[in-house]
Amino acid sequence: MKKNIILIGFMGVGKGTTARAYAKMYGVFNIDTDDLIESKENQKVKEIFNEYGEKYFRSLEQDCADWIEESVDDSFISCGGGFYKVENLKKLGKVVLLDASYEWIYNRLSTAENSKAKLKKRPLFSEPKKAKKLYKERAKAYKKLADFVINVEDKDIESIIADINKKLYI
């Protein structure tokens, strides 16, 4: 079994922030699936979606998952919001859902210091009804795939990491 920790959850929940902090704290490698895809394609996720569509992007996510399964171990991996759809997710490592309400996520993004950049990176939030609908569609799937769930609402990064470690090393 792979020793990777795979963070899934809705966009903006804090997967990348958590992974970077965990990696720094424990000296492990942190990989972000969207960053890997952007590097491979030499384009931003938003540009890939606009130019080639969602189906193509999902195929890139599957390629990324296949590479992780083949080549990566003992790493902390933050995944894009739709990465949970890859067919081999459970083979990549322990799947951890960072969970929060839609309202909390939206508020986190819109009140952050760099809120314009955070919201611009996630254009779906410019259409809150669509974003909330997508959140509701994904919530059950996330929970079904997760080995365990960490509620991140109103917690600092140290508490979130402590909660992850409690679940991992029980």
Rank of each mutant, 00 (worst) to 15 (best):
F148N: 07
A100W: 09
D73E: 08
S115A: 13
L109H: 08
N30I: 01
G80A: 00
L109T: 01
L124P: 09
S101E: 05
V96F: 06
K130C: 07
K85V: 00
G81W: 04
K94V: 07
S71H: 08
S159E: 15
S59K: 15
S110M: 04
K166C: 10
E69Q: 11
D66V: 08
K94L: 03
G27Y: 07
I160S: 06
A141K: 13
R122Y: 08
P128E: 04
K15W: 04
R122Q: 14
S159P: 07
C79V: 00
V13G: 09
S78E: 02
K3I: 02
A112W: 12
D32T: 06
D156Q: 13
Y142T: 05
A117L: 13
K40C: 02
L168D: 12
E51H: 11
D154G: 06
S101T: 07
S159R: 14
K167H: 12
L145R: 13
K136C: 05
E127V: 09
C79D: 00
L92N: 01
E54T: 02
A23Y: 10
E113R: 15
L168H: 13
L145Y: 12
K118E: 12
Y169C: 11
Y56F: 15
D99M: 05
D74P: 06
I37G: 03
A100T: 00
F83R: 02
T18C: 06
I160P: 10
K140L: 10
I77R: 02
C64N: 05
E113K: 15
S75V: 00
A19Q: 11
K91R: 11
R20F: 10
T33C: 04
D66E: 14
R138D: 02
D73V: 02
Y142V: 06
C79P: 03
K143H: 12
K44S: 15
A23I: 02
D147Y: 11
K91E: 05
N107C: 04
V28I: 13
